[in-house]
Design a protein around this nucleic acid. Structure first.
Length: 217
DNA sequence: GTTCTAGAAC
DNA sequence: GTTCTAGAAC
């Protein structure tokens, strides 16, 4: 019988493990270095297990922790840290990313009965510009917390069209840092807008909105 | 971004 | 007693 969950030894060891996890990155609060978790998309882009397709400008990967039945990321090969670094110069690139995402949806026969959204997070955790392409079932074991939910169902999630429109009109993307509070909004069904008391209830509820085989369109 | 878990909520 | 969430991780 090895150490179970709560004894003094495992408590100390787990605390130590956690320290080491982030400790590799910083000694003060400075820009994230290579190897820090926020740089993880760089290695994910080269992970054959995640890679879906690529061309001369972009790579498409499966999200490592998908929040729905289909959840891809479209990333430019060019190193663009975030929307803050995007100018008119990249408008064609953003259009191309959107087109590649939409094409992938269109050729995924199994997803024909699902709706999709393409968009960006207002304040992404991970560096390297990435366009989310995500089906709207949100049926996934990786969708666990309020933060997950609200990041895809409030205006913390900004449709790709809106971003491209703003870029075309303003020549840049205004800072969306003020949208951080969206992550703390109450849990609300994205289809019928009914508020749910907690995540397990929400997850059970949204299943009722997914079309089942045999349902009419 | 995830993991882990203390303490609140039930 | 079990479920669930929120905050630390330097």
């Amino acid at each position: 019988m090895m150490a179970a969950k709560g004894n003094a030894f495992s408590v100390i060891m787990n605390a130590q493990k956690r320290k080491l996890a982030d400790g590799a990155a910083k000694t003060t609060s400075q820009p994230a270095k290579k190897g820090h978790w926020s740089m993880g998309l760089l290695s994910s882009m080269e992970d054959p297990a995640l890679k879906v397709e690529s061309d001369d400008k972009v790579v498409i990967i499966k999200d490592k922790y998908p929040k729905a039945r289909y959840h891809w990321l479209v990333l430019p090969k060019e190193n663009i840290p975030s929307l803050k670094a995007v100018s008119s110069e990249q408008l064609d690139l953003l259009k191309h990313m959107h087109k590649k995402g939409q094409e992938l949806i269109d050729k995924t026969e199994d997803a024909k009965h699902l709706s999709f959204r393409l968009g960006y997070h207002a304040i992404p955790s991970m560096s390297h510009l990435h366009l989310h392409v995500i089906s709207q079932d949100f049926d996934s074991p990786c969708l666990k917390h309020k933060k997950h939910w609200n990041s895809f169902t409030t205006d913390y999630f900004i449709d790709s069209e809106k971003v491209m429109e703003e870029l075309e009109k303003e020549g840049k993307i205004a800072d969306k840092g003020s949208r951080n509070d969206r992550l703390k909004y109450p849990l609300r069904c994205h289809v019928c807008k009914k508020e749910q008391v907690n995540m397990p209830k929400l997850k059970a509820h949204i299943l009722s909105h997914i079309a089942k085989p045999g349902d009419k369109e």
